[in-house]
């Protein structure tokens, strides 16, 4: 047996190297930017020269950057909440639809990912001008919700698909109302998917 698998060792080694390279490629920018932020010098460089927190103090003294941070936080939080609510409803509707319509429904929910972002942005801008919401926070908020929606939808729909239909039927045959079934049976089972979708939506928007 050992002889049959002996030839796999170089393959595994190569695979290991690829994984390490992949991690280095993904992590290097993060490590560099985090390291550079603690520098004592005047330039962004890595490795950092000395150690100081003064660039953080400088950041919080810059009104424009702090305003940006607050705006991003606010928009991200609202995006997460609204997207979760809508995506949850959409995922349940998607589960209820059957047959050929279901595929079209799924595709429709994924459209913001499939259409180039620039196209969505320009189209949305024209639309927002029509309803006089262009260049307002509400308009920006709508755009973020639209773009974050597919991420939340995918994760929630996957979670809902895992819930066996028999549980729902059992709940109903035991006399639970529709709302009770949702609140006590479906929601706890879908919770991890919901949390995942919320985090996706927030990070994507942030």
């Amino acid at each position: 047996m050992t002889n049959t698998f002996a030839h796999q060792r170089p393959v595994n080694l190569g695979f290991g190297i690829v994984i390490v390279l992949l991690y280095v490629l993904l992590m290097a920018p993060l490590v560099m930017i985090i390291g550079a932020s603690f520098t004592d010098g005047m330039m962004i460089d890595f490795p950092p020269q000395g150690f100081s927190m003064r660039w953080y103090i400088e950041f919080f003294n810059r009104q424009d950057l702090v305003d940006g941070l607050l705006m991003s936080l606010r928009i991200g939080a609202i995006t997460a909440v609204v997207t979760l609510t809508v995506a949850m409803m959409a995922a349940m509707a998607g589960q209820a639809i059957s047959g050929r319509l279901s595929g079209w429904f799924q595709l429709g929910m994924m459209l913001p990912l499939l259409v180039p972002e620039l196209l969505t942005a320009v189209g949305l801008l024209f639309f927002l001008y029509k309803i006089e919401l262009a260049k307002t926070v509400t308009g920006l908020q709508m755009g973020h919700i639209l773009m974050s929606f597919p991420y939340a939808y995918v994760s929630i729909a996957a979670a809902i698909r895992q819930v066996p239909a028999s549980l729902e039927e059992a709940s109903q045959s035991l006399g639970a109302t529709g709302w009770q079934t949702f609140r006590l049976v479906i929601l706890p089972l879908v919770m991890p998917g919901l949390a995942m979708g919320g985090i996706f939506a927030f990070i994507n928007s942030f």
Partner: peptide, 18 residues
């Protein structure tokens, strides 16, 4: 892209401000 095109007057998100 979305943020850049739809940003409100006088407001910026963190990536845009950056």
């Amino acid at each position: 892209t979305i943020s850049l095109l739809l940003k409100p007057l006088g407001g910026n998100t963190l990536p845009l401000a950056l």
